[in-house]
Amino acid sequence: MSEEEPIPEPPQAEHRLAYHKEMEDLTNGVIRLGAMACETIPWGTDAMLSGDLTEIQKVIDGDDEIDELSYELEERCVSIIARQAPMAGELRRLVTIVKLIGEIERSADLMVNVCKSSRRLYGATLSPHVRGLLAAMAKEANKLLRLSIDAFADGDVPLATALGDIDDELDQLNRDMIESIFEANVGRELDLGPAVQLALIARYYERIGDHAVNIGERVVYMVTGRLLEHAYMHRSDDTAAGDAAPTGGGPNIESMDRDDSEE
């Protein structure tokens, strides 16, 4: 098969190529969806911190586009599964993508929630400390979601597994925020209404981080076929019960991981 005389591809190979193209487009679609969701984080946060109601509305309206793309991608997944009967790695990839679409779409919804809450915050004066915490949480949430998309795009298992630990920073910021809200309440600086909204907003950012961690787990599954879910469920139970310092997830996850592989 010298380069001068390429032979025509047999129909089956052409079919494979079209299928490959379809899979690649789908992957790019998920990356695009991820990019759109990531964008809403600094966008919505800026709008909130500057109290710009027009921008806030734009972020909320922009979510329709994200929803639309996520439905479209999901449909494409289903169609590929139905038509191509993919196996092994490819099936895992498609199942992962279906899951990822949900996680990403939900992350963008959480930013819509942030925006809606920030409308209810309108007029309240936030202390620079609280504003700084909000900006820091947004930055962390954005970083996590971006990294999770990177992990998916590159099939990067070490990065995907590291997301859980990176998320600890965001959890810590959430605790700091709750503490600041209590302090502000003691000092009579914050009314109950805005205080509740602030706690919710902090929670929304924290949830975005959790979705990013979920995406990481799914990416590990996509590449290796192993699910880390149980290990993390165990860990989040710990933190929920203790809500003190985060339990050092590392060794815990590893042992559960081994259990999983034995099943």
Binding site: N28, I31, G34, M36, C38, I149
Partner: peptide
């Protein structure tokens, strides 16, 4: 690169 912001430019 079709990643992050570039993915949006691409769209």
């Amino acid at each position: 690169t079709r990643r992050h912001g570039n993915a949006i430019v691409d769209a």
